[in-house]
Design a binder for these strands. Sequence first.
DNA 1: AACGACGCTGTAAGCGCTTACATAACACGA
DNA 2: TCGTGTTATGTAAGCGCTTACAGCGTCGTT
Lengths: 335, 335
Amino acid sequence: MAASVTLNDVAKAAGVSIASASRAINGLDNVTEEVRERVLAAAGKLKYVPHGAARALAMSRTNTIGVILPDIYGEFFSEIIRGIDVGARASGLHILVSGSHGDVKEAVKAARAMAGRVDGLLVMAPYADADDLSGKLPFNLPLVMMGGVGGQADLPSLVVDNYSGALEAVRHLHEQGCRRIAHIAGPESNLEAQDRLRGYLDGLKEAGLSPQVLPGDFTDATGYAAVQTLLAQDQMPDGLFAANDMMALGATLGLREAGVSIPDDVAVIGFDDIPVTRYASPPISTLRAGVFDIGRRSLELLSALIERGSAEASASAASLIVRPELVVRASSRRR
Amino acid sequence: MAASVTLNDVAKAAGVSIASASRAINGLDNVTEEVRERVLAAAGKLKYVPHGAARALAMSRTNTIGVILPDIYGEFFSEIIRGIDVGARASGLHILVSGSHGDVKEAVKAARAMAGRVDGLLVMAPYADADDLSGKLPFNLPLVMMGGVGGQADLPSLVVDNYSGALEAVRHLHEQGCRRIAHIAGPESNLEAQDRLRGYLDGLKEAGLSPQVLPGDFTDATGYAAVQTLLAQDQMPDGLFAANDMMALGATLGLREAGVSIPDDVAVIGFDDIPVTRYASPPISTLRAGVFDIGRRSLELLSALIERGSAEASASAASLIVRPELVVRASSRRR
DNA sequence: AACGACGCTGTAAGCGCTTACATAACACGA
DNA sequence: TCGTGTTATGTAAGCGCTTACAGCGTCGTT
């Protein structure tokens, strides 16, 4: 079914041995110019294309890295992928992506399927029960975690300081004069969401305010739903911190529909700084986690691990912690 | 570096031949229960993970399909990928993605790199000079084009009827009372953009209006810039058709800043129906190309090609044409 | 009791490629 | 002229896996 013309065919057509053909095609220097030309000519005529799997098997090198994300689309992951893509191009690597759809088992399955097809793994698995992962993932493949792991996280990783970010969000709203600050939380089993919730709670305690937490799952729909809940109660909050931007977006949509003024009646802030926050009306304040950079830097880290022996390097690899940056836009700026 | 424990190790540990080990692991029925258990136990203890490349080489089957897009991030492509992902999961396939960054040569390079690592290719290459492609791509790999090709398009493909869509957009604006309808075009070398431009021009002719075309490159920045140009001229248009949603988004941003009312002063419509159009304010009218479906259906088509012998199937594969659907939102609805 | 049929297991031949090693060819200085 | 170093080429051994085929023990049948 697949590519039928092999290196052997090329070698025969050029009248040389398969070894010479291989050398000529790979640009090694120990071949006569004449042979090289003959081989390349033959390859061109036959439309020869090297067989990736065979090459990978022979060299145990794939020049491909596997990427496992909860999902592979949507603003947030798209931005991560962009970062990875940029890094990968710079390192001449290809990427094999897979979505785990929020399931640890799926993530493990995906990782297993990638074994032997990639030189390293970039994994984001913000699952609370991810102890499984650490045990099952590393079939001595270089691995970089994005965003922290459940169990004993001794893996090299790039994590966002979600707690501090959330704290900062709350402080910001407080400074803007908000006194009733509600929080739309992320999925309960999501580690990042948990940290953001902790930051929120501590922030409110610090300010001496009483918290209100609404459930959410990181989608705009739940942000919208949360607002409906709020609208139905006696007193609206005057500040709203959503655990991510998509929910903040859904929330502003709901507020706008209800004729609530942002930020005057309710100040809103999200988390992540995905591109769409800028187009919203009003543009949404957020904590810039540098999503793009997380992707790019993770890849660079992984790439470095691969270059070295991986095993030793892996041990030395510090876990980088990214401190998110407060980005104040119209949705929370009161004058 | 990579996975070190091989099937051979497992076989030895289980005290059986490598063939039996293979059979046990792959769930074939011709093994004693006892042997199977021994093998699986050994595999578990040794943390054996099958080597993908080796398996691929031996079976000439990868269960992976390659996806080549101009870019692999951003709302539009993200949506395509989502469609592909959904389809792939349904068919038990993995996806190897690559961005061609708007360059035919890159696309070809990516495709070559995928040879032997995928069972089929899903390609989007809206380049005007894509004749090269048709010649160089098909190393007898099943292939489905998304969105049409430059040269003689005898390849199975899924294309959007951009011309009709554009025509419809113009008619809609006209019906809403617009009499000076400007167009923000896509990249000149982009086939889809060309068709949309043609549709626009024909639409204006049909309505007896005179056209005004502004350059763009599908990014929000150029949509914004186009509006600046318009604002600087004597008379603003009262209708604006952007060749894609991102530019429409940038345009509305610019108009809003300038205090121009949408849709009363200027009615705006985009193309593609990417998710963000719904969050914009006002929500943007557009032509729903069913981006998600294009991804999913392309994959299904490809998957079918792979199942059959590919070659013959390829010939019979009709090119599906998707007619975009007008979605009217607040940005162009005048009452 | 002998024979074929049947089912499990092992042996070995690849899949297409790279690469260590052997070989051959050639040029050089002595 | 011969040995030696240098370089181009070929041979063959894998990389880890699947799978056709052969081998062999068992059982049912006559």
